[in-house]
Amino acid sequence: MTHTVFIDGAEGTTGLEIADRLEGREEFEIIRLSDAERKDPDCRRTALNFADFAILCLPDEAAVEAVAMLNEDGNTRVIDASSAHRGAPGWTYGFPELVGPQAIVNAKRVANPGCYPTGFLALMAPLIRARLLPRDWPYTVSGVSGYSGGGKGLIKRFEDESDIAYRAYGMSLDHKHLTEMKSKAGLEHNPVFAPAVVPAFRGMIVEVPVHIAAMRNAAKAEKLRAELARYYAEAPLVTVHEDQPDELVLRREQGPSDRLDLWVCSDADEETVRLIARLDNLGKGASGAAVQSLNLMSGSDELAGLRI
């Protein structure tokens, strides 16, 4: 059976990467609009309502407008790569490793996780659920990402201003990812979030430092690692590493990946721990996540088209 797919925002970075992952997939027929048609609301509305699946690769406001164009009694199933619907009623959170693949299979509306929340939640949600870390601790999450996650404006800036070595942002401490990280991890407080951008096109490292000795009833590093390994034992895209590497790096030029790698590093006494996730902000953090959901929703192989 062939499914029609409309990528609304197909010319952006996320849309182009999704199209690349769907290239040559006989089970999907991509609906393509000309430049003029993409700017015509009536053409977009027709495409959105004709498609079996619509993937929204748009700014938040435009994603809300696109959903409003859908017929209430229509059959179009939606995957939204923006942050507009991640906590909205009626939307399934598009992280099958956390919500269960069957929840995605049966969903009509799926909201992609954010790239930083993907790393944070992959580490924290299983450990909070298992009560190995407390829900009421004031956690901190830091991370660095390739500049492609900032869209065309930031991509141009990094490519034009070759002397930028590091860009910290989110200084107002009210980043839109905070609500997502708090609610999906089941925390009582927003984490302190310290994101930054480095001069690599893609890739990201997300880290949660934890002072085990200062917490009540927190598990030691080996137990944290064992729980993550148990939790992701059947997750084909997630690897929980047993080693404690001397360093983790991002390369300026590296290929796309839809994998997610996790580490639990600690001092010799296991009193302090660094929970670390490495992923591709354009892969598992965006386009790969959308295609993984599309595969599940359409009855395809979950890993088809993914970069693994």
Rank of each mutant, 00 (worst) to 15 (best):
T2N: 11
H3T: 10
V5K: 01
D8Q: 11
D8K: 10
A10Y: 06
E17P: 00
E23I: 03
I30A: 08
E37V: 09
R38N: 09
D42G: 11
A47Y: 01
P59L: 04
E61T: 14
E61L: 12
N71I: 09
E72M: 15
D73E: 14
I79H: 01
S82I: 02
H85L: 02
G87R: 15
F95S: 13
Q102P: 00
K108N: 15
N112Q: 07
N112G: 05
C115N: 13
A125C: 03
R129T: 13
A130K: 04
G146I: 05
E159D: 13
Y166C: 05
M181K: 03
E188I: 04
P191S: 07
P199K: 04
R202S: 07
G203C: 04
V210C: 06
I212S: 11
N217M: 06
A218I: 10
A218Q: 08
E222P: 00
E234F: 07
Q244E: 15
E247F: 13
V249F: 04
R252S: 10
P256S: 12
S257C: 06
L262M: 03
S266M: 02
E270M: 12
T272C: 09
L279H: 06
D280E: 08
A286Q: 10
S287H: 05
S287F: 09
L296G: 04
S298D: 06
E302Q: 12
